[in-house]
Design a protein around this nucleic acid. Sequence first.
DNA 1: TTATATGCAAATCCTTTGCCGTCGA
DNA 2: TCGACGGCAAAGGATTTGCATATAA
Lengths: 144, 144
Amino acid sequence: MPGQIERLCIERGLRMTGQRRVVARVLSEANDHPDAEDVYRRASKLEPKISIATVYRTLRIFEEAGILQRLEFGDGRARFERTESEHHDHLIDTSSGKVIEFQNAQLEELQEQIARDLGYRLVGHRMDLYGVPLGQAAPAKDEE
Amino acid sequence: MPGQIERLCIERGLRMTGQRRVVARVLSEANDHPDAEDVYRRASKLEPKISIATVYRTLRIFEEAGILQRLEFGDGRARFERTESEHHDHLIDTSSGKVIEFQNAQLEELQEQIARDLGYRLVGHRMDLYGVPLGQAAPAKDEE
DNA sequence: TTATATGCAAATCCTTTGCCGTCGA
DNA sequence: TCGACGGCAAAGGATTTGCATATAA
């Protein structure tokens, strides 16, 4: 039984090779936001002879087919997640690196309006929030 | 007469060398969002023997001193702008590459609130909008 | 069969670093 | 003076690519 991603690949007419199935499966089963190295590591367990070049090529192809979303959190490498019907943004916990997904309709609306006011039609956006857990670290400046 | 950035450098106790003055000046005079290569190119006109390594080192030092802001628009290289008292975000015109700055207090407030609702204190964020000029390209799907 | 995909290693792009001579305070 | 700085070239990390072989359809 093909996973969600493999199904999408077939739908979009991508040639399904053993390697692509493995990458598709790794991504279907991921609940986090793996980078290429992570995907390679996980895929290698299922298909030891897969190469990192194939992983990169496959990720790019999946992204171009709209199956994957590329995320960049500013640490120099790209992370991937499957495209979901409901759009969401990310909050990165800077103290642990944990990534939290959230949705906010008001925010989406506001972004469209801002673009419109500037004379543009919004075709995309990227928004990442960086935060530390409340009650951790020092919120005020003059405490110690 | 030192520019705004050189003044900040002095304020923060950075040792002022000829190269740093040149980089500071280039950035003080920039009205766009140059990447390291751009800064190097512009600095070279004022100081032909400056090296790209020095430009990178200086940009990093200025950034760490809070004098510069590092921007990443997803094209693989960092861009820089001087830190301004009033925060702003960017809208990138995907048809021309032009970058438009904007401020929106409601947006900032909403971001803080979202973080708070998730149990976080917002320590930073990054938001870029991507758009095409209104009236250009096809907004509807079934026209031609 | 035949265009497309994969492996491997080399290449690229952006950025950082080691080393050693130089310069600012 | 003397520790910080700059130049050069080499190193690094992430990602892409050329080429010969293998494979899906």
